[in-house]
Design a protein around this nucleic acid. Structure first.
Lengths: 201, 201, 201, 201
DNA sequence: AATGAATGAGGATTCATTCAT
DNA sequence: GATGAATGAATCCTCATTCAT
C-alpha cells in the first residue's frame, strides 16, 4: 500500500535500522538485506533511497553526529558559567541517547570505517573539532594556557571510556564515566587555578 | 620444496602478515588470500596451520598482547620507584613497537572483533586487567584510596589516545601522547597527595 | 497536470528516446528508467503505454523502418529511369536521417535483437524484402537475369557498410559509402549490359 | 578430483562455452553461470581464471580472431597467384569454422560490444586492418589504383553477408556467399583490367 | 610441507514491473 | 493521465574453506 511522502519516513527508518543493526551485529559486516528487513522494507528500497551501502553508512553516521550536536547545543543553551558548561558537555557525552550499547558500537565502527572512507574521516574530524571548540570555550577562562592540554585530554578520555564500554561486560555505566571525567577535570583545574574550587561529586 | 621445521616460521610469518594486512586495509575485512600472499604462502597453508580465519585473527591478537606484555615486563624490571614504574608503563604504551599505525589499526579492530568473539573479548579483558594491576601496584602508594579511579582514568585515556590516532591525520605522535598522560598523572597525584611534586615536562 | 490527447505525443517521445538511448549506450542494455527520463516521463508511464520493454523496442524498430520506408517512397516518387531509381535507393540508404551514429547503433542492435524476437525478425525480413523488391524493380531492365544477384549483393553491401560504421572510428562517411555502392553498381551493370552475358551462378 | 595443469584446459573450455552460449542465446546477455555450466565448472571458477565477465568476453573474441587469422594464414600458405589468393581469403571468410550460426552470432555481438569496450574495438579494427592488408596485397597487381576501393567493398560485402545470416532464416549458405563475393570480384576486376580473365565459379 | 583446483554460500546491486493514489 | 513507492528476481562477484596431489 504505497503512499505519498514516504521518502523521509523510509530514510529515517533505514538510518535507524542501520545503527541498530551495526549495534546488534557489532561490526560493519552487516548486510543491506538485514538492515532493510529491520526497517520493514526490501533491500532494493534501501538502494533506491541511498544508492549504496556506503552511502547508507554515511547517512547513519551523519545522523548520530547530528543528534549529538543538537543535544550538546540544547544542553549548553542558556548556560553561561564555564564550569557548568563543561559539566554539560560531559553529561551529554554520556547521555542516554548516545551512551547506549548500540550507539557505542556504531561509534566504534565508524572509527574503523574512517580508515577507508574520506567522508567518514571528515565527519569524525568535524565532531572532534566541535568538541574541542566547545571545551576550549569553557576551559579558557578556567585554565588559561593549560586549556588546550586539558581539552585534548578530556576528549581522549571520553573516547577512551567509549571504547572500553565496547567490551560490554557490564552495561555501560554512564554515571561512573561522568564521574571519572569530572574528577579528572577537578584535578586538572585545581592544578591550573590559584584557588581551586572543588565541585562536589 | 618443503623443509622441515618450517611450521613456527610460517606461523610467525602469517601472524605478522595478518597484523600488517589489517593495518594496511584498516579493517577486519581482509582476505585470507591477501594475508597469505603477504606471507608468501598459499591461503590453503594458512588454513592448514590455523584452521580458520578467526583462529588466525586470534593468534594475531595474542601476538600483539604478548609482545606488549613482554615489553611492559622488560620496562618494569628493576624499577622500584612507584612514580617511575608509572612512567614506564605509560612509555611502553606508546612505544615504537605498539604505537605504529598498523598496530593501532589492528588494536582498534580487535575491539570491534571482541563484539563477536568471546575469545577476543577475553583477551582484551586480560590486557585491561593486567594494565590495571600494574597501574594499581604503582598508584596505591602514591594515591591511596584514589588509586583505583586514577588507574581507570589512565587506562581509558591511553585507549582514547589510541583511537584518536586511528584517524591518521598526523602521524601518531607518541611524545605528545606520553606528555598528556604524564600531565594527567601529575595533576591527579598532586590532588591526591599532601605534597605534590611536579615532574618536569 | 495530465492533459488530454497526450498519448500520441508521449508515445512518440518514448520511441525517440528509445532510439536515442540505444544509440547513446550502444547496446540494448538500456533501462526503461533511462529511456523514460530521456523522454521526460516516469518509467511507469512507459509501461502504461507500451506494456513492456520489449514492446517498446519493437515500437522503436517499427518507427525506424517506417521512417526509412517513407523516405524511400518519397525519393522514388516520380522517378522513372531505372538507373536513377537505383541511385535514389542507395542515396536514401545513407541519408542523413538513417546514417547517423545513433540510428546505426540502433540498427545493429535490432539485428541482435532479432535473434530472440520473432517480431523483430519479421520486421527485418520485411525491410529486406522491400529493399529487394525495390532493387529488383530497377535492376531487371538493366541487368536481366543477373538482377537478383546484383540486388542481393547491393543489399549485403549496404548492411556491411552500416556495420562497419558501428566501430565509430571516423564519423560515418555517407558520401564515401554511396560512392562505393555506386561504383559497385557501375561495374556490375557494365558487366551485365550490352555484350557480356554472364553465366548463371 | 582436482588435478594439476588444469588451467589451460579450463580456460579453453570456458572460452568455447562463451562462444557457444552467446551463439545459443543470440546476445551478450548471457550469464557467467550458464557459461560455466556449459563448461562443466562453477561460475566461481570462471571468475577465478578470467577475473570478470568482460575479460571472458574479450578472451572469447580473441580466440575467434586468432582462429580466423590462423586459418587465413594456412590458406594463403604457398599460394602465389593473386587471384587465387583472393579466392582463398574469400573462401576462408565463409569457411566451416567461421561461418557457423554460433560464430556468426558471436561476431555480430562483438560488433555491438565494441561500442562500449575499447579493447573489443581495438580487436575488431585489428581484424579489419589485417583483412584489408591481405586483400590489398592480392588486389594491387590486379586492379592497380582501384585496389583500395575494391578491397573496401569486398570487406564490407563480407561483413554484410555475415550480418544477413544473423537472421537465420535459412541455415547459413556459405556457397552462395562465396559466389556473391566472387562474382563481385570478377566484375570489379573486369572493369579494372584491360584483359579480364574470368575465373570459373 | 605445500599448493592448485574447485566450489557453495552469500552479498551488493540493478531493473522490469506492479500498484495505489 | 501520470507517478512515487515498492519489490522479486536475477546476476556479478568474492571468499572462506576443502581436497587431491
Amino acid at each position: 500500500m504505497p503512499k505519498l511522502g514516504m521518502e523521509p519516513l523510509r530514510r529515517r527508518a533505514l538510518v535507524a535500522a542501520t545503527i541498530a543493526e551495526i549495534g546488534a551485529v557489532g561490526s560493519l559486516e552487516v548486510t543491506v538485506s538485514n538492515i532493510a528487513r529491520r526497517a520493514g522494507v526490501s533491500s532494493a528500497l534501501a538502494h533506491h533511497y541511498f544508492g549504496s551501502k556506503d552511502k547508507l553508512f554515511l547517512a547513519a553516521m551523519r545522523a548520530v553526529l547530528t543528534d549529538f550536536g543538537a543535544e550538546v547545543r540544547a544542553a549548553l543553551r542558556g548556560v553561561r558559567d564555564p564550569r557548568q558548561r563543561l559539566s554539560a558537555i560531559v553529561r551529554v557525552s554520556f547521555s542516554e541517547t548516545s551512551f547506549r550499547p548500540e550507539v557505542i558500537a556504531a561509534w566504534l565502527n565508524f572509527y574503523v570505517h574512517a580508515q577507508n572512507s574520506d567522508e567518514t574521516q571528515r565527519l569524525l574530524r568535524l565532531y572532534q573539532a566541535r568538541l574541542h571548540t566547545n571545551l576550549m570555550h569553557a576551559l579558557r577562562p578556567l585554565a588559561g594556557p593549560r586549556a588546550d592540554t586539558i581539552a585534548r585530554t578530556t576528549a581522549a578520555l571520553i573516547d577512551g571510556l567509549y571504547i572500553r564500554q565496547a567490551l560490554r561486560d557490564p552495561a555501560p555505566d554512564a554515571r561512573r564515566a561522568v564521574q571519572l571525567v569530572t574528577d579528572y577535570l577537578d584535578d586538572a583545574l585545581a592544578a591550573s587555578a590559584p584557588l581551586p574550587e572543588r565541585t562536589p561529586a
